[in-house]
């Protein structure tokens, strides 16, 4: 984002010095995202856990090589492609090891093989947005009263009108509107902040 010049993004910090604190922060912010992407490739949760560790190791090794200018893509795009390849290789080797026992692997491999970079990109973009919004909510949540939290979560979960919400939480319709508006505004700010912090 625009203020790259003045403030190093998490990624830049990590590239410059690979110390424990930065890495921890990175893992904290990125691992849920990586996990979701892996799951989106139809991987079971047991395997996903294993794969995520693989991906994190790869990032740790290769992070200094990632260069936005050189790859002409965002970090998350690079990451998305890397995750796909890791998943692909993982199943390839697994399939050859016990080729007779499991057909499911071939299925996943086949799907991954057909997947274009653009499709990977769509998944990673979509999940990135979800991820950032989720992070923003995690950060903000406790600043609001419990009732506000519940109203907002309910309002996002389903298509539900203010009147229904008011009824459900025993509030006036205008309070529901105010609650929602307050959270939304705060969320917008936090999303923009997080996005510029985490994106490079």
């Amino acid at each position: 984002m625009t203020d790259n010049n003045t403030r190093y993004t998490l990624l830049k910090k990590l590239q410059n010095s690979r110390d424990e604190k930065n890495w921890e922060e990175f893992v904290h912010y990125y691992s849920p995202y990586i996990f979701v992407i892996i799951r989106r490739f139809n991987v079971g949760s047991q395997d996903s856990e294993e794969l995520m560790q693989d991906v994190l190791v790869k990032i740790w090794k290769n992070i200094s090589k990632y260069d936005r200018e050189k790859y002409k893509c965002r970090f998350r795009t690079w990451l998305g492609v890397m995750i796909r390849n890791t998943v692909f290789n993982f199943f390839k080797s697994k399939a050859s090891r016990n080729s007779k026992s499991n057909v499911n692997y071939d299925d996943i491999i086949g799907k991954l093989e057909l997947m274009t970079e653009a499709e990977v990109n769509i998944i990673s973009e979509r999940e990135w947005k979800n991820h950032i919004a989720q992070l923003a909510w995690d950060n903000l949540k406790n600043k609001f009263s419990e009732q506000t939290q519940r109203v907002f979560e309910a309002s996002v979960k389903d298509e539900i009108s203010n009147a229904e919400l008011a009824n459900q939480f025993d509030l006036s319709e205008s309070s529901v509107r105010v609650f929602k508006m307050r959270v939304r505004k705060a969320m917008h700010k936090e999303i923009i902040r997080l996005n510029s912090e985490l994106e490079s």
């Binding site: 849920p32 996990f35 979701v36 799951r39 949760s45 996903s48 856990e49 979509r126 947005k129 979800n130 950032i132 919004a133 989720q134 923003a136 909510w137 979560e153 996002v156 979960k157 939304r184 969320m187 917008h188 999303i191 996005n195």
Partner: peptide
């Protein structure tokens, strides 16, 4: 790991 978010699709907010 908790993979299910409290809401599935909030990229709208983003």
């Amino acid at each position: 790991r908790e993979e299910e978010h409290f809401f599935d699709d909030i990229n709208e907010l983003f």
